[in-house]
């Protein structure tokens, strides 16, 4: 009980929650990117992968539930911490110098909220497949394909190509992954700090690792809508 109290009510405890949930979300976005990049291996590869994920049944829902609680905890602690931080500094200086503080580190809540808004849109767009939000006039739920082994399944490849051929959807996607990269460029280094896993030797290494991964993520994710806008996938769909 005391442990839970310390975790949820103390400043450092909430930073552990922030760090652990941030680490989980980070692991998820890396995995999700690797999965998505299979779009470049052609329709069969990505559709087989998507079919495999869909066929995991209860496990899929377990993961979804876990993700929901992780996101919930991350946002809850982000909001609580940010409100406390504002209350602790009621008077600003006449000049906002932010000496020694990077842009990314000062805008975590802002980048976070845009990411949250994007995630909501993204789920409606590709998971729930609400026709109204995809701006193409097509109904993604009707896209079907047959895998090489004869299984009839949802045509995720076509959904991605059609979905990203809308410039506005792609633009929002690229903006969101850029902000995700900004968030994680600071967040990865920060999470190791929050969890107490840094010292004078590991601080520069982990910070550099965070920056590199942040670039890998933005390039990996943004390459998909950009390639599709440049014409990738049109051939394969014919």
């Amino acid at each position: 009980m005391k442990l839970l109290y310390r975790l949820f009510r103390s400043s450092l405890g909430r930073k552990y929650i922030m760090g652990v949930t941030g680490l989980c979300l980070f692991a998820f976005v890396v995995g999700h990117m690797v999965g998505n990049l299979q779009v470049f291996l052609g329709p069969e590869a990505i559709n087989r992968y998507a079919h495999f994920l869909q066929s995991t049944g209860e496990l899929l829902w377990l993961v979804r539930l876990a993700m929901l609680s992780i996101v919930g905890l991350h946002i809850w602690s982000a909001v609580v911490l940010t409100l406390e931080n504002r209350a602790a500094r009621p008077v600003r200086y006449t000049q906002d110098v932010f000496y020694g503080a990077s842009y990314a580190s000062r805008t975590m809540i802002g980048s976070g909220f845009v990411i949250a808004a994007f995630v909501l849109f993204h789920l409606l767009h590709y998971t729930v497949q609400v026709k109204g939000v995809n701006l193409t006039g097509q109904d993604f739920t009707t896209f079907e394909t047959t895998l090489k082994n004869g299984t009839v399944t949802h045509d995720v490849f076509k959904m991605m190509v059609v979905g990203f051929s809308n410039v506005w959807v792609s633009l929002f996607y690229v903006v969101a992954v850029s902000l995700l990269s900004l968030h994680l460029g600071h967040g990865i280094g920060a999470l190791f700090q929050s969890l107490g896993l840094k010292n004078d030797v590991w601080t520069p290494r982990l910070d550099r690792f965070g920056k590199v991964i942040a670039w890998v993520l933005v390039i990996g994710y943004a390459s998909i809508p950009i390639a599709i806008l440049l014409g990738y996938g049109k051939e394969a769909l014919k």
Partner: peptide, 13 residues
């Protein structure tokens, strides 16, 4: 009533 660390690094600077 002190705030929480967001690892900005201003303090060390």
């Amino acid at each position: 009533g002190f705030g929480n660390c967001t690892v900005t690094g201003s303090c060390a600077a």
